[in-house]
């Protein structure tokens, strides 16, 4: 329609005041993190790496479940495949460990292509169960590979870990920076993805799949892209984890509690469907673990109880409460119209 009057003057804003504060804060935190190897100990480095990859896994799961509606209970498949790819590439193919991390991600993504063909035929709860079953299948398959230790697993030869650094501290510091890059890189990629045209499609699908199709959005391809991205980065994370642990076995590499259930806990209590939520969830998770580490089984019971209470009282997680009350967004993915 060509209406007689012309379009009113307008501007599209993509940032908020809190997002600028957030940016300054983020830069300060990154600078601080980069300096840790100069003043921190090995334990500090290990803990920060763990926090980094946990937040990365949570961001990816949030992208899958919170946006694409793909409630996967099988992301441990790609942690395990990434870990095993690293062992295979370094031990059997002689690839240096750091490039092997990237290649492990690529391998995980390649395996995700046929995996998606199977699990994408399933919907809702069946999808969740299907992804879990497939992860178990990959675990069994890895347990058959004799060169990689079969069912009992194997250790990474010292000669290979030497590639990462001569001294123990050098190795920890190198892996620390890899973990930092993966953690920050994942958040940056997820943020950029959600701000882009892809993100517009993804949020539309989250809100109504039917309507998304009717406005020309290719739902399957949009979800497929997210699934492959998650597999790629999860595979790299798996490789990093087992390069640090120096020992792999099917039971630990494909562990549903460590690599998926804990992550779901973090995303759900933090706030599903936002970038801020997984950060908040990870904070709560690590705090609970720190204070309750000595109580054994009570720790798991309390973790479950916290999750249930938050799900009942705040279905959109802790960040949902904050965002509703104060309307703050550190990672603005919205487009605001400002008429002039």
């Amino acid at each position: 329609m060509s209406s007689a009057a012309s379009t009113p003057a307008f501007r599209i804003e993509r940032s908020t005041r809190t997002s600028w504060i957030g940016l300054v804060l983020a830069i300060a935190i990154v600078v601080l993190l980069v300096s840790v190897p100069w003043w921190g100990g090995e334990d500090d480095l290990r803990l920060i790496v763990e926090i980094c990859y946990t937040i990365a896994l949570a961001q990816l799961w949030n992208l899958l479940a919170g946006y694409a509606g793909l409630v996967s209970v099988g992301q441990q498949a790609f942690v395990g495949l990434g870990g095993y790819a690293l062992f295979g590439l370094t031990i059997l193919a002689g690839v240096p460990p750091l490039p092997a991390i990237v290649l492990a991600g690529v391998i995980a993504a390649l395996i995700a292509v046929p995996t998606a063909l199977i699990v994408f035929r399933l919907r809702g709860a069946y999808f969740a169960i299907g992804t879990w079953v497939i992860a178990e299948v990959y675990s069994e398959v890895m347990g058959l590979i004799r060169d990689l230790g079969a069912g009992t697993g194997m250790s990474l030869p010292v000669a290979i870990s030497r590639h990462v650094g001569e001294t123990r501290f050098d190795r920890e510091a190198s892996l620390y920076y890899v973990g930092l890059v993966i953690g920050i890189g994942t958040v940056a990629v997820v943020f950029a993805w959600l701000r882009s045209r892809q993100g517009l499609a993804l949020t539309a699908i989250r809100d109504s799949e039917t309507a998304a199709g009717s406005v020309g959005i290719n739902n399957d391809r949009t979800k497929y892209a997210v699934y492959l991205l998650a597999a790629l980065v999860t595979g790299m994370i798996g490789a990093l984890i087992y390069l640090e642990k120096l020992r792999i076995s099917p039971d630990s590499a494909f562990d549903v509690i460590d690599w998926t259930a804990d992550i779901i806990f973090i995303v759900v209590i933090g706030g599903i469907g936002s970038i801020e939520g997984p950060f908040l969830g990870a904070l709560v998770f690590f705090a609970l673990r720190y204070f309750l580490a000595d109580y054994g089984a009570w720790y798991m019971i309390l973790l479950g109880a916290v999750a249930v209470v938050i799900m009942l009282l705040a279905p959109r997680g802790l960040w949902g409460l904050v965002a509703d009350r104060f309307d703050i967004h550190f990672f603005p993915v919205r487009r605001r119209v400002r008429l002039e």
């Binding site: 517009l200 499609a201 949020t203 539309a204 989250r206 809100d207 469907g273 487009r335 605001r336």
Partner: peptide, 13 residues
């Protein structure tokens, strides 16, 4: 509607 997206973003999609 895409309920959690803004009115503008609905049309933009």
């Amino acid at each position: 509607p895409f309920g959690n997206m803004s009115v503008f973003e609905n049309v933009l999609a």
